[in-house]
Design a protein around this nucleic acid. Structure first.
Length: 998
RNA sequence: GCCCGAGUGGCGGAACUGGUAUACGCGCACGACUUAAAAUCGUGUCUCGUAAGGGAUGUGGGUUCGACCCCCACCUCGGGCACCA
């Protein structure tokens, strides 16, 4: 198998490159800069599998090409090493997490070093290094000491907010803040104690203290993440390990007010060259929705319920109000609630359930009415009941909703279960725009009330239809309601008049109507009809005679459900309606039973009704503020101090870093608090015992690489301005809603503060697909299907691994590893090596030159697009062409080596060197393709007859259509196909195809 | 349930902006070299048909001179969200 000794040459060149520091980044280059960044890894204890380096190889290929193109490249690597896995690994192996990280980093670097990646290792960062996390802590304090001004749409220093309070209280302040802010004036502010002031400011800070529910496992004495919990056979939440009961516990946390940036994070996506897929995920995650905030007054109390709705147009159909069980109003209303015990029990029960339990979709909704409480529907003054229910979330909107069961599925389910009234106020509006029923623009509308009778024969399950003789259509029985006539009477009358059937019985009044605008073909007018639907069953087949006038126009027929193809309204809709008469209408439509808003369309009604009841239009986001605390040891300490009176002070820069104390035991203390709460010296100083979450260090590391050893700043302004944003970011798509949002948030913040000059940190991004095992599953120790890159490098060489990983398939796609296919990549490199025998000083053949220059173009463009697989396949074709040639010009061959060099840096360097080059191939300049050499003078194009290829012809590329026509019609194949048929069309698309239509 | 993305030979995949579908690689078959094997090289390899020719890009329709590509409906798989009012 071995044609060349990859072990020898790879080692040799890796040493050479490292000794000569050929990948060293210049602090400020004269030329253009290019920042190519990999998402830095979490160095785990198990080592790498063959999928891990795939992204690194891709970014390396890109960086190498750009380096050869003359860019000053920043291409660094580092480690994100705080967090649970390292802590867990340390606990299991009974070593300190720092030690564990050191070991894992070593393994990681050994495995990476043999692949030949062009990192500048001198810029390595490690989030667990106090010299690094000093600045993570500093950024935290910057965020802590800031608030978000919604008017200026940027973050500002908290001191400026204090000045505003001192001058004018908080009346004029429009800030992103917690939603339980009280209004105060200057006098109030001055009267507040230090602690009170602190508490108020806390509600404005961008990093703030608060409480949240966590999953608490008393037996283990720890907090568990959602995925560490399972549901046992009895339906209780238990820990995955050990099966111990888990309950909810409210715990003190730190938060980051990322929601302040929701809109900027949303619109910032527009300018980014990311895959639309990732942008879509972020958009959904942010979850912007426009709606109205409306108030329902509570009867006999000076309180009201604020609800958020996107469907203010359905307000007249709101038949009850639901509060989240956690809603603060519940306890405020206690004295008025006559069934308080029941309510209390319900809330208590709910607390023991996990979120997952409570919100799983298939679970039936539950709730309790707050008896003795009535809310007033602001639209019509109706008194409606108030409930608490598990399907309303405290954390979204206002924690309360108006329930409109006729137009919302959840409310509908709930109303059905508890027998609450359902009131339809929006109807489907159908405008007939096609056919001879299409609305005539020149005619006014004539309004009619009408019925649509769905008559079923229970004996054979067929439906009564009218077949119109003139129009070849059939539909259900429809007709107008006379003045003062009862709709059901009208329906019975129409059935009798049109079909003669007189013994039918009403089986269902779905209380549904549909508005339809159409042109009445017989009456010759534009109609705007409101059809009320009724279901009837036929009792017997006795018929009266039908009036002669009706008989002329239509027949009476019986049809199966599926055959009902047409009504005056719309066949498909009616068909669905018959199948599901409990149909709740959730789309926009036209209003009725809504007072002065009747006949208005939903969109307009939303604004008008909101205005009418004194509500306001608001924007809400699904995204929540991010918890910025973990109750663990292995994380950055939060640089804050609490004194005995509850006053918090922030550490100053000169006191940073606040280092993690070295302790013997960093196991959980058993109260749910961080292990730091058990460290006496730490607690005595009053230091915060929570540590930062895993995403803290990774939210700004890309800035530190720009100036990695700076002791005075997180990075100098000069370095930041020179490197600017990351030009190419490569990593997994799994960070779409975590890291990629948090780091955009931090960067936007740092921009507001003037520390960085760009809003968005990652201009272009490519997401590496996963490498699956040969069995199509994820590679995992558990399945025993892990392929280790060390083995591949040892058997085939690093160049083969690199070429294969790029050749496997599209960069962003997940692909299974193939132990069989890799040999193809090795053969390719062997062939390249063997081509050395053919190198001469003679000129290469014209054909070879042409293929070479085309390949240079293709590879250059493909690498730019990360289409690595097609770049390699085009080089394979070039090599096949070279094999056919008797000789290859040395200069041509060197150009080929250069374009192959990013993929196979070792073998190309070896041959390059053997050909007498002194300087590294990786420092040479990227070859340019010769435009003249890739132009084809004659082209081969296909000739189709009626769209089928019949032959191909070779013609000079600029030949005129008339001449081509002549040649084509002299062609034997074409003559046989065309014969003496008439030529209807002759289509010539320049340089592409000829199609003859006969 | 809702929102994205994808379905092409035995396998991984290619196909520019709607213009010769199956490039490149793996595998397989046959042949050359060899005492032999490996390695290497050559030839073939979607499918039906002796051929002429026909049929194939998940399924069914549509638009077009022409569709893997655009439109509609459906099926399957992957991802995201999941009572967000």
């Amino acid at each position: 198998m071995k044609n060349y000794d990859h072990k020898k040459i790879e080692k040799k060149w890796q040493k050479e490159w490292s000794d000569k520091k050929i990948y060293k980044t210049l602090d400020a280059g004269k030329g253009k800069k290019m920042y190519v960044l990999d998402m830095f890894p979490y160095p785990s204890g198990v080592g790498l599998h063959v999928g891990h380096p795939r992204g690194y190889i891709g970014s390396d290929v890109y960086a190498r090409m750009k380096r050869m193109e003359g860019y000053n490249i920043l291409h660094p690597m580092g480690y994100d090493a705080f967090g649970l896995p390292a802590e867990q690994y340390a606990l299991e192996h009974k070593i300190h997490p720092r030690k564990a990280v050191e070991e894992n980093v070593k393994t990681f670097e050994r495995q990476l070093s043999i692949i030949g990646l062009s990192y500048d290792w001198s810029r390595k960062v490690n989030t667990t290094d106090p010299k690094y996390y000093k600045w993570t802590q500093w950024i935290f304090l910057e965020i802590y000491n800031s608030w978000y001004d919604n008017k200026k749409n940027k973050a500002r220093k908290i001191d400026e907010l204090v000045s505003i309070f001192e001058k004018s209280g908080n009346v004029k302040v429009n800030a992103a803040c917690s939603n339980d802010i009280k209004i105060f004036n200057v006098k109030d502010w001055k009267s507040y104690s230090k602690k009170e002031k602190q508490d108020i400011l806390m509600k404005y800070r961008l990093a703030f203290e608060g409480y949240s529910e966590v999953n608490w496992c008393p037996h283990m004495g720890t907090v568990l993440a959602n995925d560490e919990i399972v549901i046992d056979a009895k339906g209780n939440s238990v820990s995955e390990r050990g099966g111990y009961p888990v309950e909810k516990k409210s715990m003190r946390q730190w938060f980051m007010r990322i929601t302040a940036y929701a809109d900027r994070l949303l619109f910032g996506l527009d300018g980014l060259e990311w895959s639309s897929h990732i942008k879509e995920i972020q958009k959904n995650w942010i979850g912007k929705s426009e709606g109205s905030e409306l108030e329902f007054k509570i009867k006999n109390r000076d309180l009201s319920i604020k609800v958020f709705t996107t469907r203010a147009d359905t307000l007249f159909g709101a038949t009850y109000v639901v509060l989240a069980p956690e809603h603060s109003l519940v306890s405020q209303l206690k004295s008025n609630i006559s069934n308080w015990k029941e309510v209390e029990k319900y809330i208590k029960n709910l607390r023991d359930k996990t979120d997952e339990d409570r919100t799983s979709n298939d679970k039936e909704k539950t709730g309790v009415e707050l008896k003795g409480i009535k809310a007033i529907n602001p639209a019509n003054g109706e008194e409606v009941p108030v409930w608490i229910a598990d399907y309303v979330l405290a954390t979204y909107g206002t924690g309360a909703v108006m329930a409109v069961p006729a137009h919302d599925e959840r409310d509908f389910d709930f109303a059905k279960k508890y027998n609450l009234p359902i009131k339809r106020v929006v109807e489907l509006k159908f405008k007939n725009k096609e056919g001879d029923g299409a609305i005539r623009k020149d005619l006014p509308f004539v309004r009619r009330n009408a019925i649509c009778a769905i008559v079923r024969n229970p004996k054979n399950d067929k439906y009564l239809c009218i077949s119109w003789k003139n129009h070849l259509m059939h539909g259900l029985v429809t007709g107008g309601i006379e003045d003062d006539e009862d709709p059901i009477e009208a329906a019975l009358r129409e059935i009798k008049e049109e079909t003669g059937y007189k013994n039918v019985i009403l089986v269902k009044d779905p209380k549904f109507a549909l508005q339809s605008q159409f042109y009445h073909r017989i009456k010759k007018e534009n109609r705007w009809a409101r059809f009320q639907y009724f279901f009837f069953d036929l009792i017997d087949e006795e018929q009266d005679l039908v009036d002669e006038k009706e008989v002329i126009m239509h027949d009476v027929i019986w049809k199966n459900k599926d055959e009902i193809s047409f009504t005056v309204i719309e066949g498909q809709f009616t068909h669905n309606f018959i199948n599901n008469p409990d149909y709740i209408y959730i789309d926009d439509g036209i209003l009725h039973f809504s007072g002065q808003f009747d006949d208005m369309e939903s969109e307009e009604a939303r604004k008008k009704i909101t205005e009418f009841v004194g509500g306001k239009i608001v924007t809400r986001y699904r995204m929540r503020d991010a918890i910025f605390a973990r109750q663990r040891y292995w994380g950055e300490p939060i640089p804050l101090k609490h004194d005995k009176d509850g006053i918090i002070t922030d550490l100053k820069l000169k006191n940073l870093p606040l280092e993690l104390p070295n302790v013997k035991s960093y196991e959980s203390v058993g109260t749910g608090e961080s292990p730091l709460a058990g460290v006496k010296s730490w607690v005595k100083e009053g230091y915060e015992t929570n540590t930062m979450p895993g995403w803290a260090g990774s939210s700004w590391y890309f800035l530190r690489y720009m100036d990695p050893v700076n002791k005075k700043e997180f990075a100098s302004k000069k370095a930041i301005d020179y490197w600017n944003e990351v030009d190419m970011y490569v990593g997994g798509a799994e960070h779409a809603t975590g890291h990629l949002l948090y780091s955009r948030f931090w960067n936007n913040f740092l921009y507001d503060m003037g520390y960085v000059s760009f809003k968005e940190p990652f201009k272009r991004m490519k997401n590496i697909g996963m490498v699956l095992a040969t069995d199509g599953r994820k590679m995992s120790k558990r399945w025993g299907n892990v392929i280790n890159p060390d083995d591949i490098v040892s058997n085939y060489g690093a160049d083969t691994l690199r070429v294969y990983e790029m050749f496997m398939g599209p960069f962003e796609q997940s692909l299974p590893w193939s132990t069989e296919s890799i040999i193809g990549s090795r053969r390719f490199i062997d062939k390249v090596d063997r081509l050395r025998d053919k190198i001469t000083k003679e000129k290469s053949s014209d054909i070879l030159e042409k293929v070479l220059h085309k390949t240079i173009k293709k590879v250059t463009e493909d690498i730019e697009d990360f289409a690595m697989n097609t770049a390699i396949s085009s080089m394979m074709m070039l090599v096949n062409e070279m094999e056919k040639s008797t000789s290859i010009n040395v200069k041509d061959f060197k150009m080929f080596l250069q374009i192959l060099a990013p993929f196979a840096p070792h073998i190309t360097e070896e041959i390059w060197n053997k050909l007498g080059e002194k300087q590294s191939i990786h420092k040479s300049s990227w070859p340019k393709w010769d435009k003249k050499k890739i132009i084809d003078d004659t082209i081969t194009i296909a000739v189709q007859v009626n769209g089928k290829v019949r032959t191909t012809i070779s013609i000079p590329k600029d030949m005129e259509e008339e001449k081509i026509k002549e040649i084509v019609f002299q062609n034997k194949d074409i003559i046989t196909w065309v014969h003496d048929k008439e030529i209807k069309r002759f289509i010539y698309v320049k340089g592409r195809i000829i199609n003859i239509v006969v």
